[in-house]
Write a protein that binds this DNA or RNA. Structure first.
Lengths: 198, 198
DNA sequence: TTGGAAAATGAACGATTGTTCATATTTAGT
DNA sequence: ACTAAATATGAACAATCGTTCATTTTCCAA
């Protein structure tokens, strides 16, 4: 099924924003990609900023809320929980739309305070909270050495983020990321060897 | 001693570029901060791009080349080498000018291919190479468990970068980074416990 | 089939952009 | 003190920006 003009605008705008940034993306460029005049855009959006905000809202709206009980159950198994977390992280990293939105976020992160706050919340705080709880359970179960759960969570997450960041940079120039395709799994293995009991 | 007009231009321009990005920084804004008219700028630089390129070149020109022999000697001691690496990394992270340049890099990273290549080279490849060699030596010395040195280097570096990235984001909004001030030292402790023999 | 709403058009606007240029001022070496 | 070079000025330029508006076209429900 074909997209409505409004949807087309959001699609083309998000692509341009993620490639050029907000400032360098002109209303005329967006309209041209959609196949209409710039004045027609204003029948669908109040202004340029509203287009951007609509896209930004969409990014965070699609964030999945995880079932606390299910996590606590899974965390008791130790490494498989981390493997599953990493797999999800990897899936998102290589998903085309997620990649575009991630780039859009990073490109505007340093000039847009609201986006920055939400980014830290969604990409850091939320993950740290989830992982902390999981590591706490693993310690209770005697699966991993005792430590500050928040620190362990920070250490675990940081590598995943770095890999994603690295992959994102390489893919802009269409460079190969094959040497990084299993990096997240390797990270889980390496990490688990470092924290497990014995 | 007071700065020359050319130096003033570079100083004010780098500040603006790191705050607004290249596109949003106008020649008039730079000139205004320096205290001259925009036309006077062109007595010192060919155009806006030349100002930016001069700054970009400076960033990478100041990168320190490390003494290979000294590193190999220090790596034999194991953890103290990592502690020293982290301390240097931390120093740079909290250095005012380095922070400004790091922000400038990140803000333009996604729209400037040349910058992107140099960034990966200087901030990733170089560090990975250095750390790989060190970890290789530590394995030879029987200080740490055997593993792929590149993987261990990647794991070690990723956390440091993430901390720096996190701190950079928080400092834009003048938010407290005190809870992260010792994170790099904690990282070394945690990491060493995970890789050391026994 | 028709009428009204929705969507698209083309021209125009004021503001801002990077850059140029003729001219004026300041600076430094003799 | 004189001169030439270096530097600063103010006005102007063409291009591009986001946005508005009167008008026309398209579309769909009655």
């Amino acid at each position: 099924m074909s997209l409505s003009t409004k949807e087309k605008i959001l699609k083309e705008a998000s692509t341009l924003f993620s490639q050029l940034g907000y400032k360098a993306t002109s209303v005329r460029k967006i309209a041209s990609k959609v196949g209409i005049r710039e004045s027609a855009l204003y029948n669908h959006f109040k202004n340029k900023e509203e287009i951007f905000l609509t896209i930004a809202d969409e990014i965070f709206a699609t964030s999945v809320e995880l079932d606390r009980e299910k996590i606590q159950e899974e965390a008791k198994r130790g490494k498989p929980f981390l493997a599953r977390f990493a797999t999800t992280y990897k899936l998102v990293t290589f998903d085309k739309n997620s990649e575009k939105m991630f780039r859009l976020l990073l490109i505007e992160l340093f000039t847009n305070e609201a986006l920055r706050k939400k980014f830290i919340q969604e990409f850091h705080d939320k993950n740290i909270k989830l992982l902390s709880e999981a590591f706490f359970i693993m310690m209770q179960e005697g699966l991993i050495r005792s430590n500050d759960p928040m620190l362990v969570a920070y250490e675990f997450l940081s590598s995943l983020f770095y890999i994603r960041f690295h992959i994102t940079l390489l893919r802009i120039d269409s460079e190969s990321t094959s040497h990084l395709s299993t990096q997240m799994e390797k990270h889980v293995d390496f990490f688990w060897e470092g924290i497990k009991v014995q």
